[in-house]
């Protein structure tokens, strides 16, 4: 019996699809639900059934009857009302008119978000900067050879275009004192000739943490963690001595090459390491000049090349695209 009912419903469902006119509708109704229909026969056989079977089949017959009736009506109404005639092509591709954020903005957002997660403030600072904040407050007095390391754009008003985001270290300490955790994404300037790997205008991200017990072990932890979050994979880092007047000890931080995982490839010049970010313990003189007591506080600072990070992330080999304003370059990026 069950099998028969199932077949009946299947046949009726199939046949319902062909309902086009009122006639079709009446015919199919009469065929499946009318007095002479199979279903009627079953229903009239109920009276001869056992009480148990009656309980079982009675509601089932009714359900089938109602369902089929609704189905036929539905098809019929659809047939007479009809869907609107489609006048467009639903298969044409989406209109891809999109805006874009600059790749450096996207990378800066990623990294500042990571640092905000561990409580960093995100600060900014002026691009036209004074000699004091760019050099003197960072322990680079007049005539210091370190001034040569950074080919500075000097201005006719005595100011300069900042050569790094580090001046904001001093500005932040003056404004907020210690303890402090802060980072500064920003644009910096070096008087260099342009080529595929040199720009006179590029982006850095400065970071600094100052508190009572900041150690070299903390530098390694924070840098490693930050890079793991940035690259979304575990990276090895190594510190080697590096000289920057505003840190002591100063380090160059290398991370294991994310292309070859440290095995050696052209990107890392077969060394397995990529020089990523100068960092170090904030020089006691720098703390002192900005009003933080170096006896009480220590801190670390780092400078990450944001433009460089963007080049690594998107595998951009020519730095000149970044400031070109060329929409063929920029359009490829999204908003995150």
């Amino acid at each position: 019996m069950k099998e028969e009912l199932k077949n009946l419903v299947e046949m009726a469902t199939e046949e319902a699809k062909s309902i086009k006119t009122e006639n079709d509708y009446l015919n199919i109704k009469s065929k499946y639900l009318g007095k002479k229909s199979k279903l009627s026969e079953y229903m009239s056989s109920l009276k001869d059934m056992t009480v148990e079977d009656k309980k079982k089949y009675g509601p089932l017959f009714n359900k089938i009857k109602n369902d089929l009736e609704a189905l036929f009506t539905n098809y019929y109404e659809n047939a007479i009302n009809g869907e609107e005639k489609i006048t467009f092509d639903p298969t044409i591709p989406a209109d891809e008119k999109n805006g874009s954020l600059h790749p450096v903005t996207i990378v800066a957002k990623e990294i500042t978000d990571i640092l905000k997660n561990i409580g960093f403030m995100v600060l900014e600072g002026p691009e036209m900067e004074s000699d004091y904040y760019n050099f003197v407050a960072l322990n680079v007095p007049k005539n210091h050879p370190a001034r040569d390391m950074q080919d500075t754009y000097w201005l006719d008003n005595g100011a300069l275009l900042r050569t790094h985001t580090s001046p904001v270290q001093a500005r932040a300490m003056e404004k907020y004192g210690a303890p402090i955790k802060m980072c500064v994404p920003g644009r910096v300037f070096r008087n260099e000739d342009l080529d595929a790997s040199h720009e006179n205008t590029f982006f850095q991200l400065e970071g600094m943490v100052i508190d009572k017990n900041i150690s070299i072990s903390n530098v390694i932890y924070v840098m490693k963690g930050m890079l793991r979050e940035v690259f979304k994979q575990d990276v090895e880092v190594r510190l080697r001595p590096g000289f920057f007047p505003f840190v002591e000890p100063g380090f160059e931080l290398d991370c294991s090459c994310t292309i070859c995982n440290g095995k050696g490839c052209p990107t890392c010049k077969n060394s397995g390491w990529i020089e990523l970010c100068p960092c170090g313990m904030v020089h006691p003189e720098v703390l002192k000049m900005s009003g933080v007591d170096p006896e009480e506080y220590t801190g670390f600072a780092f400078g990450l090349g944001l433009t460089r990070m963007a080049m690594m992330k998107y595998k951009i080999s020519d730095i000149r695209g970044f400031n070109s304003g060329d929409l063929r370059f920029l359009d490829q990026f999204n908003v995150r």
Partner: peptide, 24 residues
């Protein structure tokens, strides 16, 4: 040898950080 230093998380007071609006 810096490679012999064990990385350690920074221990600091849990304070609320007020963000400057410019970047955000």
């Amino acid at each position: 040898g810096y490679e012999n230093f064990v990385p350690k998380p920074v221990k600091m007071d849990l304070n609320f950080v007020k963000q400057e609006p410019a970047y955000d």
